[in-house]
């Protein structure tokens, strides 16, 4: 992914090409930049605009024919890239992932890569083959990397510890979770939340004032999902306290079988209090924009990589990012069809 001489030439050709194809009547004259616009009379000092116009016209005249050759070369090299990509499809995920990012980096300014954790980097306590290596190589490119995940019970610290055990080099500040998103919303709106969260998640809310609560933050918390606590939360929400949901998953797989996620409890409170919860995790648009906010990069300059067609890819696309689906983790044949519009055919 090094910045090679070839890519420099490619950029130069692209720019020249861009100038060469500017259309006289359809484009330039509309801006007062036509042939006979902006050019002073004989003997006048040519202004900056006039000089630029002259340059554009010269480029258009001189470069149109010779440009055909390098452009042809560039096109065929791109075609080579995509066949290479096809061939490597069945190779290990990490490599595939990196290849895709590099192809896209060549197509548009890429400043940041968001990566899902479970199912993309690891599955439970096993790393996805090739993922560590892929991450290391990505680190050498000039892009920021962030790790984004929907969790309602794992603190950033415990996530980092698990990743480090699996030999991923990750720092706590590179992790953005649905809990981080909830915290940042609470801080921004200066709320004092009633936290319906497992003890293990409370760490991420250290320093937040929870006295005389005026908002409800709800994650998956079987210990709190009892009649008294849910009634307390309900009464607050009915009186107008905002209901903030870490995410709205219906259920999840536990060692002993399927178990209810936080979603049903959120849906129950929404129904009873006739309100809508603010969901902060994936696939919400604000989750992705918040994850990028401290990187100083816009969604169009970022890609999201994950194994969940709806939450990772669909959500990222909806936020204006590119979304890449990996065929690991929870991926199942046909997941591509769950996104509307579908991902581009070669992604």
């Amino acid at each position: 992914m090094a910045f090679t001489l070839y890519s420099l030439i490619q950029t130069a050709i692209l720019c020249t090409n861009a100038v060469a194809v500017l259309h006289e009547e359809r484009f330039l004259s509309k801006f007062g930049w036509g042939v006979d616009q902006g050019v002073g009379g004989f003997g006048d000092d040519p202004g900056v605009k006039a000089q630029i116009l002259t340059l554009i016209r010269s480029v258009r005249t001189v470069m149109r024919v010779p440009l055909i050759i390098p452009e042809g070369a560039a096109l065929s090299s791109q075609r080579r890239n995509s066949t290479l990509h096809q061939r490597r499809r069945n190779q290990e995920v990490g490599g595939e992932l990196l290849l895709k990012v590099s192809i896209m980096a060549g197509r548009r300014a890429l400043k940041a890569v968001l990566i899902d954790l479970s199912g993309t980097l690891h599955i439970e306590d096993t790393a996805v083959p090739g993922a560590q290596d892929a991450l290391n190589r990505l680190r050498q490119a000039s892009v920021d990397v962030k790790f984004v995940t929907n969790t309602t019970k794992e603190s950033k610290r415990s996530l980092v510890e698990r990743l480090q055990r699996l030999h991923f080099h990750v720092q706590e500040k590179e992790i953005f979770t649905s809990l981080s998103a909830a915290r940042s919303l609470v801080e921004r709106k200066q709320l004092r939340p009633l936290l319906l969260l497992e003890d293990s998640a409370l760490e991420d809310f250290t320093g937040i004032d929870t006295s005389e609560p005026n908002a409800v933050v709800i994650g998956l918390s079987p210990d709190h999902f009892n009649y008294q606590t849910l009634n307390q939360a309900f009464r607050m929400v009915l009186e107008g306290a905002p209901l903030i949901a870490i995410h709205k998953a219906r259920y999840y797989k536990r060692a002993d079988g399927l178990a209810l996620g936080p979603g049903p409890f959120v849906a129950g409170l929404e129904f009873a209090a006739d309100c809508r919860a603010t969901v902060v995790g994936k696939p919400e648009k604000c989750f992705f924009t918040q994850a990028l906010s401290d990187l100083g990069c816009s969604p169009t300059e970022a890609v999201m990589i994950g194994d969940d067609a709806r939450d990772d890819v669909g959500g990222a696309q909806n936020a204006g990012m590119l979304g890449i689906l990996v065929r690991t983790g929870k991926y199942r044949e046909g997941d591509e069809d769950k996104i509307n519009p579908p991902p581009p055919p070669d992604m």
Partner: peptide
Amino acid sequence: GRYYKEGDGLALDVGAYMKALEYACD
């Protein structure tokens, strides 16, 4: 029902839990 009055406050009625199971099982 969504809720009813119980003692000095309002309490969730069966409708809230019905919605929870509806949502979970679609």
